[in-house]
Design a protein around this nucleic acid. Structure first.
Lengths: 248, 248
DNA sequence: ATGTTTTGTGGACAGCGTACACAATACGGC
DNA sequence: GCCGTATTGTGTACGCTGTCCACAAAACAT
């Protein structure tokens, strides 16, 4: 309602929608919010926009294209959740700020996963693949996406001397792995048996784990006892295994 | 081919398939292997089994039911990948065995994710939810599912004195979070820019992080400075937010 | 006012999951 | 061996989906 007609507001004819693209995007976001990515159905979005199915193709190349736009919006929402948490970080020494910033990032992430599971899954549980910083519409208020916000927090930790610079490269993946994995477990069921308080407790331990994992300069465990043969083949098994591993 | 006919092998009439359920399951597994869960299409499975679409309904209540069976098989495959890695753990002191068992679990998990992304995603990236130990057909050779295997490894660590007993509850979620999250990042794209060697390096650091995170008895960081107001409001974005968060 | 570009409509198609009625086969009791 | 019954695969059909095409209406440039 009250769409901004481009020239003269000839109120009778609804042929021109005014801002169909936005309407479709918002319908898609609403669908994703309750139902996740698979609920983003093109025809349903057009239905909600009060328009014939094919009209969508004037604004999105395909359902996947619409879904990508919804995903960008969901990523932006994740970024905003992080920013909201960052804004609550109290003043203090650079060390404190850095440490609590990292924590805030993690908490914002988990908070969003728990409160907006549909959008969260849309943002991340994507079959096709995920470009971390590509789409500019996936940023938060600060103009940064979730991934950049995490990187910033880690940079602050380096500056504050909490994270050895040589451990900085790849550190976002350590942090992201732990928190993202936890969010996935929460969403996918394994932690549904736990109450919210227990989940938060475990979530806090996950974040602690990240902090611990980043701080140590080198593993205390010597790898001397590591079996030689595993070092060689490492992660490639390759042939023969995949062929026979269907369930009998 | 060469299906075991139940009574007399009247080779001409193919009306009775022999073991359609198994054929459908294997077709479903094949579909999931290259294409992930969304590629498990009921009609295509029946096509591959050489049967009319509705025949599937004599063996599976719905597409979702077939998908669940495929998922169980995929979980069993994950368990077998873990077991294969466990079998390579060398003899040694209980501490060594315990530590390397945990590492083997993680490596097996990551190895499977990298080698069988389709099956891995089918096993875990499930919209509906995931029962960790429910289905008996989701176990490996040892009769244990992936989750129980991890639990066993952690129990071994407690027995070896590497993990304080009071930290044992919930520990599988810490470990699982980190490794599962890393696997997801590998599958979903963010780490596609890295070569296999770098991915393995980061994966190893993730596992180190888990080990570090489990060993420490209590967090060194006091939480005194945590902002109070955050406890109250938690996460309500609610109104007006979705409306304005589309990219213009 | 007129021609061009943009945007929404109408109709169609193949593919999907699934429901119902029906036919072919296997099995259990005689 | 025969026959009723339960099992399992077939045929047809419906509504849903994403997408293509030709066409019409509105907006814009001239």
């Amino acid at each position: 309602m009250a769409r901004p007609v481009t020239t003269k507001a000839r109120a009778r004819a609804t042929y021109r929608h005014g801002d169909l693209r936005r309407a479709l995007l918002e319908a898609g976001i609403a669908l994703a919010r309750d139902g996740g990515p698979e609920a983003v159905v093109l025809r349903e979005a057009t239905r909600r926009a009060g328009v014939v199915p094919n009209a969508a193709y004037r604004h999105f190349a395909s359902r996947q294209d619409l879904l990508n736009a919804v995903r960008a919006a969901a990523l932006a929402a994740v970024a905003r959740a992080m920013e909201a948490e960052l804004a609550a970080v109290p003043e203090g020494t650079p060390e404190e700020v850095a440490r609590f910033s990292l924590r805030a990032i993690g908490l914002g992430y988990l908070r969003f996963a728990e409160e907006e599971p549909g959008l969260f899954r849309t943002a991340f549980a994507v079959p096709g693949g995920l470009e971390v910083g590509a789409d500019p519409s996936s940023r938060g208020e600060s103009g940064l996406g979730p991934f950049q916000l995490l990187g910033d927090a880690l940079d602050k930790m380096v500056a504050a001397g909490l994270l050895p610079p040589e451990r900085r490269p790849g550190a976002e993946f350590l942090a992201w792995s732990a928190v993202h994995g936890f969010a996935m477990l929460v969403l996918e069921g394994p932690l549904h048996g736990f109450g919210p308080a227990e989940r938060r407790e475990i979530g806090a331990r996950v974040i602690e784990m990240v902090e611990k994992g980043l701080e140590v300069p080198r593993p205390a465990v010597s790898r001397k006892a590591s079996p030689a043969k595993r070092g060689e083949r490492a992660l490639d098994l390759g042939q023969g295994e995949a062929a026979s591993q269907s369930e009998a």
